[in-house]
């Protein structure tokens, strides 16, 4: 009798675990194994590098996808703000874990806190009439303050865990985290695909969109929450401090492309160059993945600017 409720709980968990294993090991793992065998590049066969490359692909896709809307609304800094609130979320998760018997995945608490911060920032801008960059700065520093207080409140016990999130690392991408990032990416891509038109209209001409009867506030909130999702997903590899770069730099590298859809595609291309070569270089030279990715992204940006100059 006592086994009955356990199995009903365990079954969906097992099937979720099965699905994750199918996607990560059977699908992605096999592709990468074949790639490793064909190219003779050993690291493509290591499971943790396979997960890192998967994360790299996801980040290169969703960062510029959402970033294109942010950059052209001059809201590039919202990514940085939400990253710092995600940091508070990670700290809160680790804090709860250190006190209570429950286990809160830090990525989940980061997502909740960052999404709430996104809505807070948006309503500060909409209703309080606060200067946009001032309200961003308040939320940014405020949430970092919460995070730092929570870390020290446990006597420094969780400070070790937090470092990986601050600076990012390839090793942070556990199986569970890879699965969460993959799921987040599916959600972000689906949401942008579904709401592409209103997001574009609001980005290009907010007043015009309002005059045309679009609920601009809703779409602003949607964009802010999507930004929070991207930031939390990309944070594991990029680190809190550098994650905003993936929203901004690939997009900036692609602004000279004509047509908004094509510029998004170009930004994703720039993002792929940055993340894939960044992850590779980071492994080969044993340096921080986030920093390497950002430096490659900046190199791509500079190269594209020089190419545009040369054309003109």
């Amino acid at each position: 009798m006592s086994g009955q409720p356990l199995t009903t709980v365990a079954r969906p968990l097992q099937s979720l675990d099965g699905a994750i294993s199918f996607v990560l090991d059977v699908l992605w793992g096999s592709v990468m194994d074949v790639l490793a065998a064909l190219t003779g590049i050993e690291m493509l066969g290591f499971p943790f590098m396979q997960r890192a490359y998967l994360a790299a692909l996801c980040i290169a896709l969703i960062g510029p996808l959402v970033g294109s809307f942010l950059v052209h609304r001059e809201m590039a800094m919202i990514g940085d703000t939400l990253a710092h609130s995600a940091f508070a979320g990670v700290a809160a998760g680790l804090f709860v874990n250190s006190l209570a018997a429950v286990t809160v995945p830090p990525l989940l608490s980061a997502l909740v806190v960052a999404a709430l911060a996104a809505l807070l920032v948006q309503s500060l801008i909409d209703y309080a009439g606060a200067y946009r960059d001032t309200s961003l700065a308040i939320v940014l520093t405020g949430s970092f303050a919460v995070g730092s207080v929570l870390i020290t409140a446990t006597g420094g016990g969780i400070a070790v865990g937090i470092n990986a999130y601050l600076f990012g690392s390839l090793a942070t991408v556990s199986r569970g985290n890879a699965a969460i990032l993959l799921a987040m990416s599916v959600v972000v891509v689906a949401a942008v695909a579904a709401f592409y038109r209103p997001l574009l209209y609001v980005t290009f001409d907010e007043v015009g969109a309002r005059a045309a009867g679009l609920s601009v506030t809703r779409y602003n909130q949607l964009l802010a929450v999507l930004t929070a999702v991207v930031v939390v997903g990309a944070m594991q590899i990029m680190g809190v401090i550098l994650v905003a770069a993936m929203l901004v730099i690939p997009t900036a590298a692609a602004t000279s492309i004509r047509g908004f859809k094509r510029s998004i595609a170009g930004a994703i291309g720039a993002g792929l160059v940055a993340t894939l070569s960044g992850v590779t270089l980071s492994y080969l030279y044993d340096v921080a993945a986030g920093g390497t990715i950002v430096l490659v992204a900046i190199a791509v940006y500079v190269a594209s600017m020089l190419a545009v100059r040369a054309q003109e």
């Binding site: 038109r197 209103p198 209209y201 290009f204 001409d205 045309a212 692609a254 602004t255 908004f260 859809k261």
Partner: peptide, 21 residues
């Protein structure tokens, strides 16, 4: 504006209120 939208993309926005999805 540095936004890379084309003329056609902007004019298409005129249809968005009728065809948001």
């Amino acid at each position: 504006g540095e936004m890379p939208v084309t003329v056609r993309e902007v004019v298409r926005m005129g249809r968005y209120p009728r065809r948001l999805f």
